[in-house]
Design a protein around this nucleic acid. Structure first.
Lengths: 227, 227
DNA sequence: ACCTGAACACCGTTCAAGT
DNA sequence: ACCTGAACACCGTTCAAGT
Protein backbone atom coordinates (compact mmCIF):
# COMPACT_ATOMS: atom_id res chain seq x y z
CA UNK A 1 0.00 0.00 0.00
CA UNK A 2 2.90 2.24 0.66
CA UNK A 3 3.88 1.61 -2.92
CA UNK A 4 0.50 2.88 -4.02
CA UNK A 5 1.03 6.19 -2.27
CA UNK A 6 4.57 6.76 -3.46
CA UNK A 7 5.58 7.49 -7.01
CA UNK A 8 8.27 4.82 -7.16
CA UNK A 9 7.77 1.73 -9.21
CA UNK A 10 7.64 -1.32 -7.00
CA UNK A 11 8.68 -3.66 -9.79
CA UNK A 12 12.33 -2.74 -9.48
CA UNK A 13 14.48 -5.73 -8.67
CA UNK A 14 15.07 -6.16 -5.00
CA UNK A 15 16.68 -8.85 -2.90
CA UNK A 16 14.34 -11.24 -1.13
CA UNK A 17 13.50 -10.05 2.35
CA UNK A 18 15.20 -6.70 2.00
CA UNK A 19 13.28 -3.48 2.33
CA UNK A 20 13.38 -1.79 -1.06
CA UNK A 21 15.02 1.60 -1.03
CA UNK A 22 12.92 4.24 -2.77
CA UNK A 23 14.42 5.58 -5.95
CA UNK A 24 16.53 8.44 -4.70
CA UNK A 25 16.29 12.00 -5.94
CA UNK A 26 19.97 12.79 -5.47
CA UNK A 27 22.10 11.64 -8.38
CA UNK A 28 24.89 9.14 -7.93
CA UNK A 29 28.40 10.38 -7.30
CA UNK A 30 31.70 8.87 -6.22
CA UNK A 31 31.19 10.60 -2.90
CA UNK A 32 27.82 8.96 -2.25
CA UNK A 33 28.99 5.59 -3.53
CA UNK A 34 32.02 5.64 -1.23
CA UNK A 35 30.05 6.72 1.83
CA UNK A 36 27.40 4.06 1.32
CA UNK A 37 30.03 1.39 0.70
CA UNK A 38 31.61 2.28 4.04
CA UNK A 39 28.24 1.88 5.75
CA UNK A 40 27.72 -1.53 4.21
CA UNK A 41 31.25 -2.66 5.02
CA UNK A 42 30.89 -1.54 8.63
CA UNK A 43 27.71 -3.55 9.04
CA UNK A 44 28.29 -6.63 6.88
CA UNK A 45 32.05 -6.92 6.48
CA UNK A 46 34.06 -7.40 3.30
CA UNK A 47 31.98 -10.29 1.99
CA UNK A 48 28.77 -8.36 2.64
CA UNK A 49 29.53 -5.64 0.11
CA UNK A 50 27.96 -6.54 -3.22
CA UNK A 51 27.21 -4.29 -6.12
CA UNK A 52 23.55 -5.23 -5.95
CA UNK A 53 23.23 -4.38 -2.27
CA UNK A 54 25.13 -1.16 -2.79
CA UNK A 55 22.84 -0.08 -5.62
CA UNK A 56 19.77 -1.03 -3.63
CA UNK A 57 20.89 1.12 -0.74
CA UNK A 58 21.64 3.99 -3.09
CA UNK A 59 18.22 3.73 -4.66
CA UNK A 60 19.59 3.05 -8.12
CA UNK A 61 19.90 0.19 -10.56
CA UNK A 62 22.97 -2.01 -10.25
CA UNK A 63 24.39 -1.05 -13.57
CA UNK A 64 24.20 2.65 -12.84
CA UNK A 65 27.18 2.16 -10.58
CA UNK A 66 29.29 1.14 -13.52
CA UNK A 67 29.05 4.53 -15.14
CA UNK A 68 30.92 5.99 -12.16
CA UNK A 69 33.19 3.08 -11.48
CA UNK A 70 35.06 0.61 -13.66
CA UNK A 71 34.93 -2.35 -11.33
CA UNK A 72 34.07 -3.42 -7.81
CA UNK A 73 37.74 -3.02 -6.91
CA UNK A 74 37.31 0.72 -7.40
CA UNK A 75 34.57 0.74 -4.79
CA UNK A 76 36.96 -0.82 -2.28
CA UNK A 77 39.61 1.77 -3.08
CA UNK A 78 37.12 4.61 -2.62
CA UNK A 79 35.78 3.28 0.67
CA UNK A 80 39.26 2.64 2.00
CA UNK A 81 40.52 6.09 1.10
CA UNK A 82 37.48 7.74 2.65
CA UNK A 83 38.08 5.94 5.93
CA UNK A 84 41.74 6.95 6.01
CA UNK A 85 41.18 10.69 5.74
CA UNK A 86 43.26 12.56 8.32
CA UNK A 87 41.25 15.03 10.38
CA UNK A 88 44.04 16.30 12.63
CA UNK A 89 44.96 19.85 13.48
CA UNK A 90 47.27 21.58 10.98
CA UNK A 91 50.18 20.84 13.31
CA UNK A 92 52.78 23.43 14.25
CA UNK A 93 55.95 22.84 12.23
CA UNK A 94 58.86 21.43 14.20
CA UNK A 95 57.21 20.68 17.51
CA UNK A 96 59.58 20.11 20.38
CA UNK A 97 58.56 16.51 21.09
CA UNK A 98 58.89 14.50 17.86
CA UNK A 99 58.38 11.23 19.66
CA UNK A 100 54.98 12.19 21.01
CA UNK A 101 54.09 13.45 17.56
CA UNK A 102 54.95 10.15 15.89
CA UNK A 103 53.00 8.23 18.49
CA UNK A 104 50.00 10.48 17.94
CA UNK A 105 50.14 10.02 14.16
CA UNK A 106 50.32 6.25 14.45
CA UNK A 107 47.67 5.88 17.14
CA UNK A 108 45.26 8.07 15.22
CA UNK A 109 45.85 5.96 12.11
CA UNK A 110 45.37 2.75 14.04
CA UNK A 111 42.24 3.95 15.84
CA UNK A 112 40.70 5.04 12.57
CA UNK A 113 41.26 1.59 11.06
CA UNK A 114 39.88 -0.17 14.12
CA UNK A 115 36.70 1.86 13.79
CA UNK A 116 36.28 0.14 10.42
CA UNK A 117 37.63 -3.34 11.03
CA UNK A 118 37.57 -4.33 7.36
CA UNK A 119 39.95 -1.53 6.42
CA UNK A 120 43.27 -2.69 7.82
CA UNK A 121 43.35 -6.01 5.99
CA UNK A 122 42.39 -4.27 2.76
CA UNK A 123 45.10 -1.63 2.90
CA UNK A 124 48.25 -3.61 2.04
CA UNK A 125 46.76 -5.21 -1.04
CA UNK A 126 45.58 -2.03 -2.74
CA UNK A 127 47.21 0.93 -4.44
CA UNK A 128 48.14 3.64 -1.97
CA UNK A 129 45.41 6.30 -2.07
CA UNK A 130 45.91 10.02 -1.38
CA UNK A 131 44.85 9.89 2.26
CA UNK A 132 47.18 7.12 3.37
CA UNK A 133 49.97 8.79 1.42
CA UNK A 134 49.31 11.99 3.32
CA UNK A 135 49.57 10.14 6.63
CA UNK A 136 52.88 8.70 5.51
CA UNK A 137 54.01 12.17 4.47
CA UNK A 138 53.23 13.50 7.94
CA UNK A 139 55.13 10.63 9.46
CA UNK A 140 58.12 11.14 7.19
CA UNK A 141 58.17 14.89 7.77
CA UNK A 142 58.15 14.41 11.53
CA UNK A 143 60.91 11.82 11.47
CA UNK A 144 62.99 13.91 9.11
CA UNK A 145 62.49 17.00 11.27
CA UNK A 146 63.62 14.97 14.27
CA UNK A 147 66.94 14.36 12.58
CA UNK A 148 66.51 10.95 10.95
CA UNK A 149 68.96 10.89 8.07
CA UNK A 150 67.57 10.71 4.53
CA UNK A 151 69.29 7.38 4.01
CA UNK A 152 67.34 5.89 6.91
CA UNK A 153 64.02 7.58 6.30
CA UNK A 154 62.29 4.94 4.20
CA UNK A 155 63.46 2.17 6.48
CA UNK A 156 62.04 4.04 9.45
CA UNK A 157 58.70 4.67 7.75
CA UNK A 158 58.27 1.09 6.59
CA UNK A 159 59.30 -0.30 9.99
CA UNK A 160 56.56 1.71 11.64
CA UNK A 161 54.12 0.79 8.86
CA UNK A 162 54.82 -2.89 9.47
CA UNK A 163 54.24 -2.49 13.18
CA UNK A 164 50.96 -0.63 12.77
CA UNK A 165 49.65 -2.98 10.10
CA UNK A 166 50.60 -6.18 11.90
CA UNK A 167 49.05 -5.05 15.15
CA UNK A 168 45.91 -3.64 13.59
CA UNK A 169 45.13 -6.41 11.14
CA UNK A 170 45.55 -8.97 13.91
CA UNK A 171 43.45 -7.06 16.38
CA UNK A 172 40.65 -6.36 13.95
CA UNK A 173 40.50 -9.98 12.82
CA UNK A 174 40.81 -11.73 16.18
CA UNK A 175 38.33 -9.37 17.71
CA UNK A 176 35.56 -10.80 15.58
CA UNK A 177 35.98 -14.32 16.92
CA UNK A 178 36.37 -14.25 20.66
CA UNK A 179 34.82 -17.70 20.98
CA UNK A 180 37.59 -19.22 18.93
CA UNK A 181 40.11 -17.94 21.44
CA UNK A 182 38.67 -19.99 24.26
CA UNK A 183 38.49 -23.00 21.96
CA UNK A 184 42.14 -22.50 21.02
CA UNK A 185 43.21 -22.44 24.67
CA UNK A 186 41.25 -25.63 25.20
CA UNK A 187 43.00 -27.28 22.27
CA UNK A 188 46.38 -26.35 23.72
CA UNK A 189 45.35 -28.06 26.91
CA UNK A 190 44.39 -31.29 25.18
CA UNK A 191 47.71 -31.64 23.38
CA UNK A 192 51.16 -32.08 24.81
CA UNK A 193 52.92 -30.21 22.06
CA UNK A 194 52.43 -26.74 23.48
CA UNK A 195 53.47 -26.62 27.14
CA UNK A 196 54.92 -23.11 27.10
CA UNK A 197 52.11 -21.21 25.43
CA UNK A 198 49.52 -23.22 27.31
CA UNK A 199 51.09 -22.13 30.58
CA UNK A 200 51.21 -18.50 29.45
CA UNK A 201 47.63 -18.74 28.17
CA UNK A 202 48.64 -17.13 24.91
CA UNK A 203 45.33 -17.29 23.03
CA UNK A 204 43.42 -15.65 25.88
CA UNK A 205 45.70 -12.99 27.25
CA UNK A 206 46.14 -10.50 24.44
CA UNK A 207 46.61 -6.93 25.51
CA UNK A 208 46.75 -5.55 21.98
CA UNK A 209 46.92 -1.91 22.93
CA UNK A 210 49.73 -2.55 25.39
CA UNK A 211 51.68 -4.65 22.90
CA UNK A 212 51.25 -1.94 20.30
CA UNK A 213 52.67 0.73 22.57
CA UNK A 214 55.55 -1.36 23.87
CA UNK A 215 56.68 -2.50 20.45
CA UNK A 216 56.39 1.06 19.21
CA UNK A 217 58.63 2.27 22.01
CA UNK A 218 61.28 -0.30 21.14
CA UNK A 219 61.18 0.69 17.48
CA UNK A 220 61.43 4.38 18.28
CA UNK A 221 64.36 3.71 20.61
CA UNK A 222 66.12 1.97 17.78
CA UNK A 223 65.18 4.45 15.06
CA UNK A 224 65.97 7.60 17.02
CA UNK A 225 68.95 9.49 15.55
CA UNK A 226 72.03 9.01 17.70
CA UNK A 227 73.49 12.41 18.59
CA UNK B 1 39.50 -39.23 -29.23
CA UNK B 2 41.38 -39.51 -26.03
CA UNK B 3 38.00 -39.83 -24.38
CA UNK B 4 37.23 -42.77 -26.59
CA UNK B 5 40.28 -44.63 -25.43
CA UNK B 6 39.83 -43.96 -21.74
CA UNK B 7 37.11 -45.41 -19.59
CA UNK B 8 36.08 -42.09 -18.06
CA UNK B 9 32.73 -40.61 -18.87
CA UNK B 10 33.15 -37.39 -20.80
CA UNK B 11 29.76 -36.08 -19.81
CA UNK B 12 30.88 -34.98 -16.36
CA UNK B 13 30.45 -31.26 -15.84
CA UNK B 14 33.55 -29.31 -16.64
CA UNK B 15 34.29 -25.63 -16.85
CA UNK B 16 34.41 -24.15 -20.34
CA UNK B 17 37.90 -24.22 -21.77
CA UNK B 18 39.40 -26.29 -18.99
CA UNK B 19 40.95 -29.65 -19.61
CA UNK B 20 38.79 -32.22 -17.85
CA UNK B 21 40.59 -34.18 -15.19
CA UNK B 22 40.03 -37.93 -15.50
CA UNK B 23 38.05 -39.45 -12.68
CA UNK B 24 40.73 -40.34 -10.20
CA UNK B 25 41.28 -43.78 -8.72
CA UNK B 26 42.52 -42.53 -5.37
CA UNK B 27 39.73 -41.66 -2.99
CA UNK B 28 39.33 -38.16 -1.59
CA UNK B 29 40.92 -37.31 1.73
CA UNK B 30 41.61 -34.18 3.73
CA UNK B 31 45.25 -34.64 2.83
CA UNK B 32 44.60 -34.63 -0.92
CA UNK B 33 42.08 -31.81 -0.69
CA UNK B 34 44.52 -29.61 1.24
CA UNK B 35 47.45 -30.32 -1.08
CA UNK B 36 45.41 -29.57 -4.19
CA UNK B 37 43.99 -26.41 -2.65
CA UNK B 38 47.54 -25.20 -2.01
CA UNK B 39 48.40 -25.83 -5.66
CA UNK B 40 45.41 -23.84 -6.85
CA UNK B 41 46.07 -21.00 -4.43
CA UNK B 42 49.70 -20.79 -5.48
CA UNK B 43 48.71 -20.51 -9.14
CA UNK B 44 45.47 -18.50 -9.04
CA UNK B 45 45.48 -16.67 -5.71
CA UNK B 46 42.73 -16.49 -3.11
CA UNK B 47 39.98 -15.57 -5.55
CA UNK B 48 41.02 -18.38 -7.87
CA UNK B 49 40.18 -21.14 -5.42
CA UNK B 50 36.63 -22.33 -6.05
CA UNK B 51 35.02 -25.54 -4.96
CA UNK B 52 34.25 -26.41 -8.55
CA UNK B 53 37.82 -25.95 -9.72
CA UNK B 54 39.11 -27.85 -6.74
CA UNK B 55 36.81 -30.79 -7.42
CA UNK B 56 37.72 -30.75 -11.11
CA UNK B 57 41.40 -30.94 -10.28
CA UNK B 58 40.78 -33.77 -7.85
CA UNK B 59 38.81 -35.71 -10.43
CA UNK B 60 35.63 -35.75 -8.37
CA UNK B 61 32.22 -34.13 -8.34
CA UNK B 62 31.88 -30.83 -6.54
CA UNK B 63 29.59 -32.13 -3.87
CA UNK B 64 31.93 -34.97 -2.97
CA UNK B 65 34.08 -32.39 -1.25
CA UNK B 66 31.30 -31.65 1.17
CA UNK B 67 31.42 -35.07 2.69
CA UNK B 68 34.98 -34.34 3.93
CA UNK B 69 34.52 -30.67 4.64
CA UNK B 70 31.71 -28.58 6.10
CA UNK B 71 32.35 -25.42 4.17
CA UNK B 72 34.83 -23.69 1.89
CA UNK B 73 36.30 -21.99 4.97
CA UNK B 74 37.54 -25.39 6.09
CA UNK B 75 39.48 -25.72 2.86
CA UNK B 76 41.27 -22.46 3.58
CA UNK B 77 42.09 -23.63 7.10
CA UNK B 78 43.50 -26.91 5.80
CA UNK B 79 45.59 -25.27 3.09
CA UNK B 80 46.92 -22.67 5.49
CA UNK B 81 47.89 -25.20 8.11
CA UNK B 82 49.62 -27.39 5.53
CA UNK B 83 51.74 -24.49 4.38
CA UNK B 84 52.75 -23.58 7.93
CA UNK B 85 54.18 -26.97 8.85
CA UNK B 86 57.57 -26.62 10.53
CA UNK B 87 60.27 -28.79 9.00
CA UNK B 88 63.18 -27.72 11.17
CA UNK B 89 65.71 -29.85 12.94
CA UNK B 90 64.65 -31.10 16.40
CA UNK B 91 66.71 -28.31 17.96
CA UNK B 92 69.05 -28.88 20.90
CA UNK B 93 67.40 -27.67 24.10
CA UNK B 94 68.85 -24.49 25.52
CA UNK B 95 71.20 -23.45 22.76
CA UNK B 96 73.75 -20.86 23.72
CA UNK B 97 72.56 -18.17 21.32
CA UNK B 98 68.85 -17.55 21.91
CA UNK B 99 68.86 -14.47 19.72
CA UNK B 100 70.04 -16.34 16.65
CA UNK B 101 67.48 -19.01 17.42
CA UNK B 102 64.60 -16.53 17.51
CA UNK B 103 65.76 -14.95 14.28
CA UNK B 104 65.91 -18.36 12.65
CA UNK B 105 62.41 -19.27 13.79
CA UNK B 106 60.94 -16.03 12.51
CA UNK B 107 62.79 -15.99 9.21
CA UNK B 108 61.80 -19.56 8.49
CA UNK B 109 58.19 -18.69 9.24
CA UNK B 110 58.33 -15.62 7.05
CA UNK B 111 60.06 -17.40 4.17
CA UNK B 112 57.49 -20.16 4.25
CA UNK B 113 54.65 -17.65 3.97
CA UNK B 114 56.35 -15.77 1.15
CA UNK B 115 56.58 -19.01 -0.80
CA UNK B 116 52.77 -19.02 -0.72
CA UNK B 117 51.88 -15.35 -0.99
CA UNK B 118 48.19 -15.89 -0.23
CA UNK B 119 48.96 -17.40 3.17
CA UNK B 120 50.08 -14.41 5.22
CA UNK B 121 46.96 -12.34 4.68
CA UNK B 122 44.80 -15.35 5.50
CA UNK B 123 46.51 -16.19 8.77
CA UNK B 124 45.24 -13.44 11.10
CA UNK B 125 41.59 -13.94 10.20
CA UNK B 126 41.42 -17.68 10.85
CA UNK B 127 41.51 -19.92 13.88
CA UNK B 128 45.07 -20.82 14.88
CA UNK B 129 45.84 -24.26 13.48
CA UNK B 130 48.22 -26.80 15.03
CA UNK B 131 51.21 -25.88 12.90
CA UNK B 132 51.23 -22.16 13.59
CA UNK B 133 50.64 -22.93 17.25
CA UNK B 134 53.69 -25.13 17.21
CA UNK B 135 55.79 -22.35 15.73
CA UNK B 136 54.56 -20.03 18.48
CA UNK B 137 55.41 -22.71 21.05
CA UNK B 138 58.97 -22.90 19.73
CA UNK B 139 59.21 -19.14 19.89
CA UNK B 140 57.82 -19.00 23.41
CA UNK B 141 60.09 -21.79 24.61
CA UNK B 142 63.16 -20.07 23.23
CA UNK B 143 62.26 -16.71 24.75
CA UNK B 144 61.43 -18.30 28.07
CA UNK B 145 64.68 -20.25 28.05
CA UNK B 146 66.52 -17.00 27.36
CA UNK B 147 65.19 -15.59 30.59
CA UNK B 148 62.13 -13.61 29.52
CA UNK B 149 59.86 -13.47 32.58
CA UNK B 150 56.52 -15.24 32.40
CA UNK B 151 54.74 -11.92 32.88
CA UNK B 152 56.35 -10.59 29.70
CA UNK B 153 56.16 -13.70 27.59
CA UNK B 154 52.88 -13.11 25.80
CA UNK B 155 53.76 -9.51 25.10
CA UNK B 156 57.05 -10.62 23.59
CA UNK B 157 55.41 -13.27 21.43
CA UNK B 158 52.68 -10.99 20.12
CA UNK B 159 55.17 -8.18 19.44
CA UNK B 160 57.18 -10.47 17.25
CA UNK B 161 54.01 -11.85 15.66
CA UNK B 162 52.93 -8.33 14.74
CA UNK B 163 56.29 -7.60 13.21
CA UNK B 164 56.36 -10.77 11.13
CA UNK B 165 52.78 -10.42 9.99
CA UNK B 166 53.00 -6.74 9.09
CA UNK B 167 56.18 -7.20 7.11
CA UNK B 168 55.06 -10.36 5.36
CA UNK B 169 51.53 -9.34 4.46
CA UNK B 170 52.82 -6.08 3.03
CA UNK B 171 55.61 -7.71 1.09
CA UNK B 172 53.44 -10.45 -0.34
CA UNK B 173 50.75 -7.98 -1.40
CA UNK B 174 52.92 -5.23 -2.85
CA UNK B 175 55.02 -7.76 -4.65
CA UNK B 176 52.12 -8.62 -6.88
CA UNK B 177 51.74 -5.08 -8.20
CA UNK B 178 55.12 -3.62 -9.03
CA UNK B 179 53.62 -1.44 -11.73
CA UNK B 180 51.47 0.36 -9.20
CA UNK B 181 54.60 1.37 -7.31
CA UNK B 182 55.95 3.38 -10.24
CA UNK B 183 52.51 4.91 -10.74
CA UNK B 184 52.40 5.85 -7.06
CA UNK B 185 55.76 7.60 -7.26
CA UNK B 186 54.49 9.47 -10.31
CA UNK B 187 51.38 10.57 -8.43
CA UNK B 188 53.51 11.91 -5.59
CA UNK B 189 55.41 13.95 -8.14
CA UNK B 190 52.26 15.51 -9.60
CA UNK B 191 50.96 16.68 -6.25
CA UNK B 192 52.45 19.15 -3.82
CA UNK B 193 51.13 17.47 -0.72
CA UNK B 194 53.90 14.90 -0.36
CA UNK B 195 57.31 16.63 -0.57
CA UNK B 196 59.07 14.44 1.99
CA UNK B 197 58.14 10.99 0.74
CA UNK B 198 58.52 12.11 -2.86
CA UNK B 199 62.10 13.12 -2.11
CA UNK B 200 62.81 9.84 -0.34
CA UNK B 201 61.09 7.92 -3.18
CA UNK B 202 59.12 5.90 -0.67
CA UNK B 203 56.97 3.82 -3.05
CA UNK B 204 59.99 2.67 -5.03
CA UNK B 205 62.70 2.03 -2.49
CA UNK B 206 61.44 -0.81 -0.36
CA UNK B 207 64.10 -3.09 1.02
CA UNK B 208 61.65 -5.40 2.75
CA UNK B 209 64.19 -7.93 3.90
CA UNK B 210 66.42 -5.24 5.36
CA UNK B 211 63.50 -3.53 7.10
CA UNK B 212 62.42 -6.85 8.53
CA UNK B 213 65.84 -7.55 10.01
CA UNK B 214 66.39 -4.06 11.38
CA UNK B 215 62.98 -3.84 13.04
CA UNK B 216 63.51 -7.30 14.46
CA UNK B 217 66.82 -6.25 15.99
CA UNK B 218 65.20 -3.25 17.67
CA UNK B 219 62.43 -5.41 19.08
CA UNK B 220 64.87 -8.00 20.39
CA UNK B 221 66.98 -5.27 21.97
CA UNK B 222 63.92 -4.06 23.80
CA UNK B 223 62.56 -7.48 24.73
CA UNK B 224 65.85 -8.96 25.93
CA UNK B 225 65.82 -9.65 29.68
CA UNK B 226 67.91 -7.08 31.54
CA UNK B 227 70.44 -8.85 33.74
C1' DA C 1 26.03 12.70 -19.69
C1' DC C 2 23.81 9.57 -17.00
C1' DC C 3 20.95 5.55 -16.09
C1' DT C 4 18.57 0.99 -17.14
C1' DG C 5 17.01 -4.35 -17.56
C1' DA C 6 18.03 -8.59 -19.58
C1' DA C 7 21.31 -11.91 -20.04
C1' DC C 8 25.82 -14.53 -19.34
C1' DA C 9 28.97 -17.13 -16.98
C1' DC C 10 29.98 -17.93 -12.95
C1' DC C 11 29.61 -18.82 -7.40
C1' DG C 12 28.67 -21.87 -2.52
C1' DT C 13 25.58 -24.89 -0.73
C1' DT C 14 20.86 -27.80 0.16
C1' DC C 15 18.64 -31.78 -0.92
C1' DA C 16 17.25 -36.16 -2.16
C1' DA C 17 19.48 -40.06 -4.10
C1' DG C 18 22.57 -43.46 -5.41
C1' DT C 19 26.37 -47.30 -4.25
C1' DA D 1 30.80 -44.74 4.44
C1' DC D 2 31.41 -42.26 0.50
C1' DC D 3 29.97 -39.98 -3.72
C1' DT D 4 26.63 -37.76 -7.11
C1' DG D 5 23.57 -34.32 -10.26
C1' DA D 6 19.97 -31.13 -10.22
C1' DA D 7 18.47 -27.08 -8.39
C1' DC D 8 18.47 -22.61 -5.61
C1' DA D 9 19.77 -18.21 -4.53
C1' DC D 10 23.07 -15.65 -5.24
C1' DC D 11 27.48 -13.10 -7.66
C1' DG D 12 30.23 -9.32 -11.13
C1' DT D 13 29.98 -7.65 -15.51
C1' DT D 14 28.80 -7.15 -20.95
C1' DC D 15 25.71 -5.35 -23.97
C1' DA D 16 22.44 -2.87 -26.36
C1' DA D 17 19.22 0.61 -25.18
C1' DG D 18 16.93 4.33 -23.25
C1' DT D 19 16.64 9.66 -21.65
Amino acid sequence: MAAKRSGTRSTRSQRAGSVPQPRSETPLSLERIAATAVELLDVHGVDGLTMRRLADRLGSGVMSLYWHVDTKEDVFDLALDMVLEYRGQPQAAGTQDWRAEVIHILEDWRAQMLRHPWSASLLPSRALGPNILYRLELLGKTLSGAGVADANLNVAIWSLWNHVMGATITRASFDLSNDDQAAAQQRLHLSERYPTIERSRLPLDNDWDGVFRKGLDFLLDGLAPKP
